[in-house]
Simulated assay, not measured.
Amino acid sequence: MLPGLNGTTHAVFGVAALAGAALVAGADPPAYVYPAAVAAAWLPDVDNPRSTLGNGLSRSKNPILNVLSRPVSWVLRTTSFVLVRTVGHRTLTHSILGSLLFALPVYLFLADYPNLSLALVAGYASHVFADALNTRGVPLLWPVGRPFRLLPGGIKSGGAVEVAVALGALMAALYAILQLNPSLRALLGLV
């Protein structure tokens, strides 16, 4: 188990962040950008070779998918190796500086795709927020300062409290998604 929250929890937080940000911004993100929010929610842990993305993607049992994902997997593993050897885990990628270094190129290169931009930035930010709930906290002002925690003592990774927090984030995500999609509410008979 990683010293932070697990990948499923980060995925739920990424979806919740996108749905919540879209609700606040008055945006209507299409369903296809939600996986981008999940991937972005995993991205800050690329600085850990044992993380979902840091370990690469070439683990599929499907040989065709393995060949197709190999270049991306190589880039992720190389990035993970370089980051863990130079700045360490939970440093740059979990800070305000790291968040800005991620968001700037997203907005520069994906400005014509506002829903995708929102998904990526919301997903990335959700990871930093979620890890700020953890016992270790996050170094928001990296490279200076101490780790920042949103809760005194923080939430232990892998425990029942993490599951409860993830379920709360899932409920918030579902609520926001239902608010964004009146047709889905009607389909479910919630109108």
Rank of each mutant, 00 (worst) to 15 (best):
A176E: 00
D131H: 06
R149S: 04
V144N: 06
V161C: 01
V121C: 13
A160P: 15
A172M: 06
L167S: 12
F109L: 15
G168N: 07
A125T: 09
V106D: 11
I177H: 00
R136S: 14
L141P: 08
S126V: 11
V121Y: 08
W142G: 04
H127G: 12
L140D: 04
D112G: 14
P147L: 03
L141Q: 07
Y113V: 02
L178N: 01
L116V: 06
A176Q: 00
L178M: 03
A122F: 01
V144Y: 14
L150H: 01
A132W: 14
P105H: 04
V128C: 12
P114L: 08
P114A: 05
L108N: 02
R136L: 14
I155W: 03
Q179C: 04
L118R: 10
F129I: 14
L151Y: 08
L174A: 08
A125E: 09
K156M: 09
L170P: 07
H127V: 12
S117C: 11
E162A: 03
L133T: 14
G145I: 11
L110P: 09
A132H: 12
T135Q: 15
V163K: 02
A130W: 04
G159A: 13
A111I: 09
G145E: 11
P147Y: 02
L151M: 05
V163E: 03
A111C: 07
S126C: 04
L133S: 13
F109G: 13
S157E: 13
L174H: 00
L118Q: 10
F129D: 06
L110S: 09
V128M: 10
